[in-house]
Each structure stands twice: as structure tokens, then as C-alpha cells.
Nucleic acid binder design. Structure first.
Length: 638
DNA sequence: GTAGGGTTAG
């Protein structure tokens, strides 16, 4: 090798790319056959080795060789700082188009798209050689990443002038640019102009554009129309459905993918896990997990994190933690997801302990991390800790508090009964507060009996956001507590007039491979008779355990006995009754709710967990309740 | 003469 002449080294470097002995001679036992056959890209070690050799051999002045080094940097799997690439580029006395193109690429890769654009414009002004089709695709990529729509449109004029309008790569880069910048009409124009210069990537990019705009039906139409689909097309439409809340539709597409005997990729599994997490469908999530195992997907940070999140959101915090502790690679998002998961399960101390570990591992907390940390404090009632972390976030880490952080703090203070401190915090906020913050104080006013303040806030909220039904309900609850039934009906009338009826509460339970959804007083289910019989049995057994109904959460001005009936048939009671019917003795019952658990159902669930010896896990809008042996993980703090 | 595009949650 020492005797090699420039051309030979040139060949040697090129060969490195085709056959990396580092990858091929060290088989990774974790990687199954389909993955080890993926073409490897050069890593940092190879590039630095090659660079060192170039320097040792005194070939640093050979522009052709150093240009290739740049090309390797641009496609390298590991990210090297752009200034390393730039120093190589600057060492080339007469950079060619090839070298400059690769430098533009390196800047894109190094997340410095503005530098790419500057280099391109410098190239246009002073270069002897004109940009070629590669230059145009790379700089258009940079424009997309920088959301530089004006510069991108200018590049489009160069595309025409230089005669690359029919190049499919250039066209696709343009489509991608316009879609990223939400200019889907412009993208569609490029797409429609030269139908012969279209391929599967053009279609995929157009689908992404419509997904971003939330026009999921148009995206689906394109998906159906496209002449051929690849795995990315499927991934795009599936993730598009998940992003737009069409969760069941996403699952349907996955089924179709399986029927076509196509192998899903990691992105698809990650999207489906997100869908299962949002729906709270544990059985479905588990199925995706076993598919990932049977297809021998390596446990990457993103797949692992999606699994940790899915298990946490489906109520299995232990399984979630188990997987997290055994993930072979974790990134900061894995930690964030785990911290937030523990927090929503009311495991405040564990969440905070993990946060400490996160810091000692050298990770830098981000705004989401503090949402988890502050939620942990709020759920566990740790007021002074919450104040400490809020200060840590702003003073030590310089993170500007966002609405969510204020939300956690207001929640923390008001839940703990410091309602006036919470009001003060809202009043001191730099930005106008989200009505949700006031709603959170209002909720605490009701719980802690700050009736006058509650009335004031309730009226304010109704003025701020007259279409939000929740505010009317809260205010009505306060009046109900005072037994001011006339005011209760006044508020309810107002709510009806403004056409903002209370969102129907529902509870969902997954059983026998299906999702069963109940609303209060539901009689639609095919096993209604058995369910109502079970409700009666539940009533008898919990009464024997000393329970009497707390009816203050029922708003209507009705007779006591009727009130008791109304809460007896709340959707979660029906779901629990059904759960008791269809699951085995000792099995855990998992329920997903869209609204908050009412005080009475919370009490009943505790007693049922004791007398029926069942663990019951309820996920409501923002937290988990683990009922076990007569107590709840939220410590009645919600 | 060398190279290039699209999907991923939290």
C-alpha cells in the first residue's frame, strides 16, 4: 500500500465503499440475514483512516482524491461535523463541480442548509463550471430543509435555464420542496407538468404533501391511483392516517399490506405502535410487538421507544419499564418517553429518580423532559420539588417555559390547594393564558371548595370560550355543590342555547379480539342483560363492603335515588361489569376513557378491586389509575 | 467520470 500511486489509492478508497471489511468480517449476531445484506455506508473510522493515509502519502493536494473523501463524508452513516468537511474542501485549490456538489451535500447532512444555499449562489456567481443536475437536487434539498421557498423557486428558474426540467430526480426534489413548504398546488403543478418524468417517489412525495395539509382523503385517492406502490408508499399512507387521527384506517392498510405478502419496515411498525398507543389497544400493540420479533427487527432506539410508549399508554407501565431497562440503545427520546410514562402513571418518585439518572448519563434535558418532570411532581403532589424544577429549567437550562409547563405548575399548585398561588402564576405569565389553565384552577376550586373564586373563573371562562362545553359543566358542578339547582339549570340552558352540549363520555375495553365501547346507560351491547345483572351483583357486594353512593358529581336536579341510578350506569361501570364477565378470575381489567373519572366511580373502582380481587387500570384523558386491593395509584389526587 | 430523491413516534 505504501507504494501505491494516486490512482491506486483512488481505487482503494472506492473499493472501501463497496466492500467494507469492518462490516463484512464482523457479523453482528443481533442482525438477522435481511439486514446484514444492506449496503453499508462508510463510518467515521474508515473515513479518518483514509484521510490519515492520504496525508501520510502526501496526496493531500490531489483534488480528485480529497473530493472523494468529501463524497464519503456526505454519505457516511455517522455524522461528522461540517467544519471537518469544509477544511477538506478548502484544501482543494481548484474545486470541481463534483467537489462542490459534495460539499453542498455535507452541509445539508450537517443540518446547515443555509450554508449549502450560500455555497450554491457563490458557485453560480464565480464558478467556471455550471451547476449540474446533482447540484440542483442537493441545493433543492437544502431549500426544503431550510424552508427556503423563495430561494427554491429561484433554483427552479435555473432548472429551466440549464435544461434539467425532465430529470426525474430534480423534479422530485422540487415536489418535495413545495410539499415541505405547504405549497401543494405548486407541487402538483410540477407533478402534472411532465407525466413521463414521474416515478414512485414522485407519487409518494405528493401523498406526503396532502398528508401534511391534513387532506388525508386526497392522499388516499392518490395512493389508490398510483400505478405501483413500494414499501415507502405504504408507510407514508399509514403514518399519514395515524397523524390525522384515522387510527383504525391505518390498521386496515396494514392488514392489506399483509394480504399482499409485503414485508413492513420499521417506520410502519413505529407508526402502528403510535396508533395502538393513542387508541389504548393493548392487544393490538402486543400483536405489532410480536410481528417485530418474528420478523427479527433489531431493537433500535426508535422501535424500542415506540414500544415503551405503547406499553405505557396502554396501561402496562411495568412492561414498559422492563423493555426500557433492556433496550440495547437508547436516545434522549427513549428517556423522555419513559419519564413521561412514569409520571402519567402517578409514579412521581420513579419518574424523578429516572430524571436524575438521565442527567448523570450526560443527557441534556429538553422542554418535553420538563413536562414529564413537572407532571410527576403535580401527580405526586410534590409542590416544593415542582417549584425547584421549574426554576432549574428556566435558570440552569435556559428553557423558556411554554404553555404546557405553566399548565403543569398551575395544576400542581391548584391541586394541592394553593389556588390563589396558581391564579397569581397565571397573571404573571408573559403570554395570554390558554383557557385550559383557568379550567384547571376551576376544577380545583370545586374540589377544595373555593366557591366564590370558582364562580368568578367559571364565568370568565364561559366568556373566553363560549363554545367549550367543559366550562359550563364545571361551573354547573360548583353550583350543584352549593345545591343551587336554579343556577345549575341556568348554566345548562345557556350551554344548550350555545349549542355546546357536553361531550358524551365513553369507556372502552378490549376483549375477545374486539374493542367494546360503552356510553352511560348503554343498552346497545349484545350482552346487555348479563352486564346489567353483573352491575347488580357489583352493587350488592360493594354495599356489603360498606359503600354508599356519593351523588354530588351528578348535576341534575333529581331525586336522590334517581341520582344513584344515574351514576350506577356510568360508562366505566358498564365497562367494568363487562370486563368482569369476559375475563378470567384474577385477570387485570383495562379501561380507556375519554373523560375524567367521576369521584364516585373512582371510589367504586377501589372497592371492586378489593372485593373482586381484581386489578383495574383506567386511562382517562391525561392519567392512569391503578386500582389494586382497595387503593388507587393516584392516591385520590387527580 | 465519479454522486442523487420519498416514509418514522415520542
Amino acid at each position: 500500500m505504501l507504494l501505491c500511486r494516486p490512482n491506486f489509492l483512488f481505487f482503494w478508497i472506492s473499493k472501501q465503499r463497496l466492500n467494507f471489511h469492518f462490516f463484512s468480517t464482523l457479523p453482528n449476531p443481533r442482525l438477522p440475514p435481511p439486514f446484514s445484506s444492506l449496503p453499508p455506508t462508510p463510518g467515521i473510522t474508515q473515513i479518518k483512516q483514509a484521510h490519515a493515509r492520504i496525508l501520510v502519502l502526501g496526496l493531500a493536494n490531489d483534488g480528485r482524491i480529497t473530493s472523494h473523501l468529501l463524497a464519503f463524508l456526505a454519505i457516511s452513516s455517522s455524522s461528522l461535523p461540517s467544519d471537518y468537511a469544509l477544511s477538506i474542501y478548502n484544501s482543494i485549490s481548484h474545486p470541481t463541480v463534483f467537489a462542490t456538489n459534495n460539499m453542498i451535500r455535507c452541509f445539508v447532512k450537517g443540518d446547515l442548509p443555509r450554508h449549502s444555499i450560500s455555497l450554491y449562489s457563490h458557485m453560480c456567481r464565480s464558478f467556471v463550471a455550471a451547476p449540474n443536475k446533482h447540484t440542483l437536487t442537493f441545493v433543492l434539498q437544502a431549500c426544503s430543509n431550510a424552508f427556503a421557498i423563495r430561494e427554491g423557486a429561484q433554483v427552479q428558474t435555473h432548472v429551466i435555464k440549464l435544461g434539467f426540467v425532465k430529470d426525474v430526480f430534480v423534479r422530485n426534489a422540487l415536489i418535495h420542496l413545495y410539499c415541505t413548504c405547504c405549497r401543494v398546488e405548486s407541487a402538483k403543478q410540477v407533478f402534472d407538468e411532465v407525466p413521463s418524468s414521474r416515478d414512485v417517489v414522485s407519487w409518494n412525495s405528493m401523498i406526503v404533501g396532502f398528508v401534511r395539509l391534513g387532506q388525508i382523503s386526497v392522499a388516499q385517492k392518490l395512493f389508490v391511483e398510483m400505478p405501483e406502490k413500494d414499501v415507502i408508499s405504504w408507510g407514508t399512507i399509514i403514518s399519514g392516517c395515524v397523524q390525522n387521527g384515522e387510527l383504525e384506517k391505518a390498521l386496515d392498510y396494514f392488514k392489506e399490506l399483509g394480504e399482499q405478502k409485503l414485508r413492513p419496515n420499521e417506520a410502519i411498525l413505529v407508526s402502528l405502535l403510535a396508533a395502538a398507543a393513542q387508541l389504548g389497544t393493548l392487544e393490538y400493540g402486543k400483536r405489532i410487538h410480536s410481528i417485530a420479533n418474528s420478523l427479527r427487527f433489531p431493537m433500535t432506539a426508535s422501535l424500542g421507544t415506540a414500544l415503551v410508549d405503547m406499553y405505557a399508554k396502554c396501561g402496562c407501565i411495568d412492561e414498559s419499564r422492563f423493555l426500557f431497562d433492556r433496550m440495547p440503545e437508547k436516545d434522549k427520546w427513549s428517556w423522555n418517553v419513559m419519564i413521561c410514562g412514569l409520571a402519567t402513571h402517578g409514579l412521581g418518585q420513579e419518574a424523578l429518580a429516572l430524571f436524575e439518572k438521565f442527567l448523570t448519563q450526560g443527557f441534556h434535558p429538553v422542554n418535553v423532559t420538563f413536562i414529564g418532570v413537572l407532571t410527576a411532581c403535580s401527580r405526586a403532589g410534590l409542590v416544593s420539588e415542582g417549584k425547584h424544577f421549574f426554576k432549574l429549567m428556566t435558570d440552569t437550562y435556559g428553557i423558556e417555559p411554554e404553555m404546557e409547563h405553566y399548565g403543569c405548575m398551575v395544576d400542581l399548585l391548584s391541586r394541592a390547594g394553593f389556588v390563589y398561588d396558581a391564579v397569581e402564576m397565571i397573571n404573571r405569565m408573559p403570554a395570554p393564558p390558554d383557557p385550559v389553565l383557568w379550567a384547571s384552577v376551576l376544577g380545583s376550586c370545586q374540589v377544595h371548595g373555593f366557591i366564590e373564586l370558582g364562580e368568578e373563573i367559571g364565568n370568565k371562562l364561559i366568556q373566553m370560550d363560549p363554545t367549550h362545553n367543559g366550562h359550563y359543566v364545571q361551573l354547573a358542578r360548583i353550583f350543584a355543590r352549593l345545591r343551587k339547582w336554579e343556577d345549575v339549570s341556568k348554566v345548562r340552558r345557556l350551554m344548550a342555547e350555545r349549542n355546546s352540549n357536553k361531550i358524551a363520555g365513553w369507556s372502552l375495553i378490549e376483549a375477545e379480539g374486539r374493542v367494546h365501547r360503552f356510553v352511560a346507560g348503554d343498552k346497545e351491547h349484545e350482552r346487555t342483560t348479563e352486564i346489567y345483572k353483573m352491575l347488580e351483583i357489583m352493587g350488592v357486594r360493594i354495599a356489603a363492603a360498606g359503600y354508599s353512593a356519593n351523588v354530588s358529581s351528578v348535576l341534575h336536579d333529581i331525586e336522590e335515588e334517581e341520582k344513584e341510578n344515574a351514576i350506577k350506569e356510568h360508562s366505566e361501570r358498564l365497562a367494568i361489569a363487562f370486563g368482569l364477565l369476559v375475563t378470567k378470575d384474577g385477570d387485570c381489567i383495562r379501561i380507556i376513557k375519554n373523560l375524567r373519572v367521576c369521584g364516585d366511580c373512582h371510589e367504586v373502582s377501589k372497592i371492586i378491586s378489593l372485593v373482586f380481587e381484581r386489578e383495574i387500570i383506567v386511562r382517562d384523558g391525561s392519567r392512569f389509575h391503578h386500582f389494586k386491593k382497595g387503593i388507587c395509584s393516584c392516591q385520590d389526587y387527580w
